[in-house]
């Protein structure tokens, strides 16, 4: 998906962009209202992350002018303010969601997905490997045998594997991606989720392989016909 990050703190904007790039999305950065306005008019974005305090103007005004121009790009406002009255106003003038800085990148991704889901699924493409297909937006896993509705963590785990087939992930890496640091989970907890996915992949030509003592990877198996 194409993401426009409107944020005047350049380093933060770049950092967010790096995250999305790693997840396989493409992102643009605008540091001012003016730049953002130009980019929106030139290019189609699937979603816009909008900071409220910008050097040349206020996110409110920008958002209102976008909606007046009938530009319907989904917008998630990133605000440093905690006044909820602010956020209620934002929803009223056309923001789709808001997130309070600082946030967990995973939460931001989840909100993006939720917003896109409400907007009809633009931007996210289904991932197809072997005979399985994963829809990250709807959390649906289609196998020849059955269609599964995945739980959040199952989806995120499978997404990690399907975005990088045949790549080895250590338990630590997976734990870091899936769990909040503060949750302080046991590294073996990841095995529970691996097991859940494996159960759903029975009968498919994709499987999660265990490299004992190292980690896991998603590989294609060639089953006899």
């Amino acid at each position: 998906m194409k993401i426009l990050i409107v944020e005047d703190t350049k380093k933060l904007a770049q950092s967010l962009a790096d995250h999305f790039d790693l997840a396989g999305h493409s992102s643009s950065i605008a540091g001012t209202v003016e730049a953002a306005n130009e980019l929106v008019l030139l290019t189609h974005y699937d979603i816009m992350l909008l900071d409220i305090m910008l050097p040349d103007g206020n996110g409110h005004t920008f958002l209102r002018s976008l909606r007046l121009q009938k530009i319907a790009v989904p917008v998630i406002v990133m605000t440093a303010r905690s006044e909820i009255s602010d956020r209620i106003d934002l929803l009223d003038i056309g923001a789709d969601d808001y997130i309070i800085k600082p946030f967990d990148i995973a939460e931001l991704e989840a909100r993006c997905r939720a917003v896109l889901r409400r907007h009809g699924g633009g931007g996210y493409t289904n991932i197809m490997l072997g005979n399985i297909e994963l829809s990250p937006l709807t959390a649906e896993l289609r196998t020849p045998a059955e269609n599964f509705k995945l739980r959040n963590r199952e989806l995120r785990l499978l997404e990690i594997f399907m975005n990088a087939p045949n790549i080895l992930f250590t338990k630590e890496q997976l734990t870091d991606r899936l769990f909040n640091i503060s949750e302080s989970v046991n590294e073996n907890t990841i095995e529970v989720y691996i097991a859940r996915i494996r159960k759903k992949l029975i009968g498919c030509n994709m499987r999660i392989e265990t490299l004992r003592g190292i980690g896991y990877r998603l590989t294609e198996t060639f089953l006899p016909k």
Binding site: T9, K11, L12, S15, L16, D18, H19, L22, M53, A80, R81, S82, E83, I100, K101, P102, F103, D104, I105, Q173, D176, R177
Partner: peptide, 24 residues
């Protein structure tokens, strides 16, 4: 309060985002 929020939260956001990147 608004200013303080902005000035506290924006750098923290950056720290968090960057460290998550680094971790990954």
């Amino acid at each position: 309060i608004a200013e303080a929020a902005h000035h506290i939260r924006t750098p923290l956001s950056l720290v968090k985002s960057e460290s998550q990147l680094a971790l990954r």
